[in-house]
């Protein structure tokens, strides 16, 4: 049996402690230990963006980050965007514009999109470059860009 370590971090606003093996990925901690299965595993190698979550407000690939290295930090997953039962403006806009098709990339796309809006990155070409790490094979991205536009205007 490998040694275990204790990790304290904040997930979606709640401080939590976990006892895990030292090699646990943040992705597995989120899904298996914290039970927040909105975050998906796609490639597991940082290529597809499905596992994107926010670490202290910035998007990161949770499959490439060790949970142990997030000690004391704040993680936001797609579940954490809902406030008082209301979805985030980006979530609403994705539904409204049809930015969701098969849905597997959606949680990651939404997290990167939220970070784009929170960092006031509103140039469409730049949004495209920043979303290049979130692979979507259904929508062709047009509806996702439309969702960003809609959310950008409702968010302000």
């Amino acid at each position: 049996m490998p040694e275990t370590i204790i990790i304290h971090l904040t997930i979606n606003g709640t401080g939590r402690s976990f006892r895990t093996p030292p090699g646990r990925r943040l992705l597995d901690l989120i899904r298996d230990d914290a039970g927040q299965t909105g975050t998906k595993e796609g490639c597991g190698a940082g290529e597809c963006g499905a596992c994107t979550v926010l670490l202290d407000g910035l998007p990161i690939p949770s499959c490439l980050v060790l949970a142990a290295s997030c000690e004391g930090h704040e993680i936001t997953t797609v579940e954490g965007l809902v406030h008082d039962g209301s979805p985030h403006a980006v979530q609403e806009a994705m539904v409204e514009t049809g930015g969701v098709q098969c849905g597997f990339c959606t949680p990651g796309v939404i997290m990167t999109s939220v970070a784009l809006l929170e960092n006031s990155i509103d140039d469409r070409e730049e949004q495209g470059r920043r979303l290049a790490g979130n692979l979507c094979r259904c929508t062709g991205y047009e509806k996702i860009f439309h969702a960003l536009e809609v959310a950008g205007t409702t968010d302000d």
Partner: peptide, 12 residues
């Protein structure tokens, strides 16, 4: 720096 991986990689 803006060409290393995608944005989430660049943030980490």
């Amino acid at each position: 720096a803006r060409k290393v991986g995608a944005w989430p990689i660049q943030c980490r």
